[in-house]
């Protein structure tokens, strides 16, 4: 995703995001020399910080005060960072965002402890927010995130899975944390109940749309754009929406079985990707992503008039229309 373009969409949040960035550096600071190195390594790798952005924008619909919401923004980003560190162990990933992963630079065990340290700090940070319901939301989100990942492992290589299975999985894997970011931002700023609800659903729909696009891009982008080989998800056994739509196509099915079995040649892999790109699977998946985008925009429409409204709209459009 073009980070620069995205940042322009919320440039008025820059000073508050700088505060969050500084706070993140404080949050990952550790008395352990090794953990400090590992956490800093992660922090320097950057990231879009899209979840804190959603927290801040959602908070604009209540009594916005950076001091009272920064702990929420830091917390959701730490959760995201921690889950990436653990995901890299699961995926046996050597690099992320062009940098060596924690597990590659040290080992899996250090990655586990780094993730645990970040998760624990995330929870500790958000206890600044003395609202039981907010903690129910976040803890439920953390559990659901895990279940999403567990299901993803279960569904790997399983061609009989349905579109519904896929949607349920990405809800937990991606949409729920973005939804919680919006909801918690609104709760922390004491927005009214109706507004909290619209923001929660906005986050959910944007998250769904975003993940579908992410899955499409894994198949349609170049290796350079992705920073990893195109079709990596599929090669790892993750069957995504565009593939589900074309899995029974007689031209595609045999190659699909080869890639899932790990026996595909480089040449056949390219042929498979070309066939999927040329199929209607991509367009059908785009249509579903678009449906979620429309639902997200519809939630924004129902929010009170506010400068953040336009930003939410623009970010949703950007995330769902991005090219890589």
């Amino acid at each position: 995703m073009d980070k620069m373009k995205l940042k322009l969409l919320y440039s008025d949040l820059k000073s508050d995001l700088d505060i969050i960035e500084k706070e993140l550096a404080v949050a990952v600071n550790s008395s352990s020399h090794l953990l400090n190195e590992a956490s800093l390594h992660l922090l320097l790798a950057g990231g879009k910080r899209i979840r804190p952005v959603f927290v801040l924008l959602a908070a604009k619909f209540g009594n916005y005060s950076i001091d009272s919401i920064k702990s929420v923004a830091v917390s959701v980003e730490l959760i995201h960072m921690a889950s990436l560190v653990h995901d890299d162990v699961i995926d046996d990933a050597e690099t992320r965002r062009g940098r060596e992963t924690v597990k590659a630079q040290w080992n899996n065990r250090v990655a586990m402890y780094t993730g645990d340290f970040l998760f624990a700090n995330a929870i500790e940070y958000i206890t600044d927010l003395q609202n039981t319901y907010a903690h129910e939301v976040l803890s439920h989100t953390m559990v659901e995130l895990c279940i999403g990942e567990i299901i993803q492992i279960e569904d790997k290589h399983y061609l009989e899975q349905t579109v519904r299975d896929y949607l349920r999985r990405i809800k937990r894997k991606t949409a729920i944390l973005i939804s919680a970011s919006c909801e918690l931002g609104a709760i922390a700023s004491q927005a009214d109940e109706e507004t909290v609800k619209h923001l929660k659903w906005f986050g959910y729909y944007v998250g769904m749309s975003f993940q579908i696009i992410d899955d499409i891009l894994d198949l349609t982008s170049t290796d350079e754009e992705l920073g990893k080989p195109a079709g990596s998800d599929l090669a790892q056994g993750n069957i995504t929406l565009p593939v589900l739509y074309v899995k029974n196509d007689p031209d595609i099915e045999p190659l699909l079985k080869e890639i899932l079995a790990g026996t595909i040649s480089g040449e056949n892999r390219q042929i498979l990707l070309t066939k999927i790109r040329d199929s209607d699977g991509i367009n059908r998946a785009k249509q579903i992503s678009n449906l979620y985008l429309q639902k997200a925009l519809n939630e924004v429409k129902q929010l009170p008039a506010n400068s953040a409204k336009k930003s939410l709209q623009n970010i949703a459009l950007f995330m769902s229309k991005r090219k890589f």
Binding site: S30, S31, S32, H33, L34, L35, W106, N107, R109, V110, Y113, T114, D116, F117, F119, A120, N121, I123, E124, T127, Q130, T132, H135
Partner: peptide, 23 residues
Amino acid sequence: LDLIQILSEGVATISEHKTRFYD
């Protein structure tokens, strides 16, 4: 919530001490 805060701080400390064996 208070106990959550105390325990999570403790888990962070435990993780720090576990890494001592890899440092």
